[in-house]
């Protein structure tokens, strides 16, 4: 009996682990709500993989626990004398092989859609984001779509607006970000947009997204952008180690309801920038710890 207990012990621990994941969606330990046009593709593929892995997790662990229980040693007993089984080997090579190949091929179109430069949609709004230790500088042109935007990304314009840690766009806009870094590697991570891209020293990397939900409204009387819903405070994080302050490269994503609302905000931001000191970058150089 004591021998059989080991199978039960393994079973209980594995069941607890399984349940802790299974209750995740109920208690909020799950993916944050998606607000990106390609987010459903990512989430769908996540659930496909989750389905297959859950099946194989349950299959192998149940067999293991059952075998540990059923075949616990008894004195005087002998094991079966089997060296292998050719057809079983074929079965458990070909079936998982087919499933894995399906999983791999299923990823390709979503990957192309998210990252291939040739497949990125024509932008409605272009901005250039520069990471450094430890903040983000968002550079906006005076119009949502500057002419020859690839060139604009490389050559700053007198009319550009620089804002620290605030990423503004409007709902439904195809946003193109030209991502750069001043110093070390960083990674632009927007969990709700299912977006992540490293910033690479010496390179400009195009990134795109299209937000399917709005979270802010520009208030012309106060000059502030106000959240439409307290729970829609979408954050920007850094996902590549960049030194001591890695954890505090926090930014915010402002998705305006309409293009007009965005333009109102842009006009205001422009005026505010002009009335400031002539120096371009409003943010002080971050003090190093």
């Amino acid at each position: 009996m004591q021998q059989k207990g080991w199978g039960i012990f393994f079973g209980v621990v594995l069941l607890a682990a399984f349940l802790s994941i299974a209750v995740g969606p109920l208690v909020g330990w799950w993916l944050p709500a998606n607000v990106s046009s390609f987010g459903p593709d990512v989430d769908y593929l996540y659930y496909v993989i989750l389905g297959f892995t859950t099946f194989f997790f349950l299959l192998t662990e149940v067999l293991l626990v059952w075998a540990m229980y059923r075949f616990a040693g008894r004195p005087g007993n002998k094991s079966q004398y089997v060296e292998g089984h050719h057809r079983l080997e074929m079965l458990w090579t070909v079936v998982p092989g087919g499933i894995l190949l399906y999983i791999a091929i299923a990823q390709i179109s979503a990957w192309e859609r998210i990252k291939y430069q040739a497949k990125m949609p024509d932008p409605d709004l272009v901005m250039q984001v520069t990471a450094r230790q430890w903040d983000w500088t968002m550079r906006y042109a005076d119009t949502p779509l500057p002419e020859n935007h690839r060139r604009w990304a490389e050559i700053p314009n007198f009319d550009d607006i620089y804002l620290p840690d605030e990423l503004h766009c409007w709902k439904g806009a195809n946003v193109r970000i030209y991502l750069k870094t001043n110093d070390v590697l960083h990674s632009l991570f927007l969990p709700q947009l299912r977006l992540k891209q490293d910033a690479l020293p010496g390179k400009t990397i195009p990134v795109w997204f299209n937000a399917t939900d709005a979270n802010t409204r520009f208030n012309a009387s106060t000059g502030n952008c106000e959240w439409t819903d307290k729970n829609k405070e979408w954050e920007i994080a850094c996902a590549e180690l960049c030194g001591g302050g890695h954890y505090r490269m926090r930014g915010l994503l402002y998705v305006h309801e309409t293009k007009d609302d965005y333009l109102n905000w842009l006009k205001h931001a422009q005026k505010a920038a002009r009335s400031r000191q002539p120096e371009k970058k409003a943010t002080p150089v971050a003090a190093k710890d």
Partner: peptide, 9 residues
């Protein structure tokens, strides 16, 4: 798994 199936553990 095949190894412990039918074994005398």
């Amino acid at each position: 798994l095949g190894t412990i199936w039918g074994a005398n553990i």
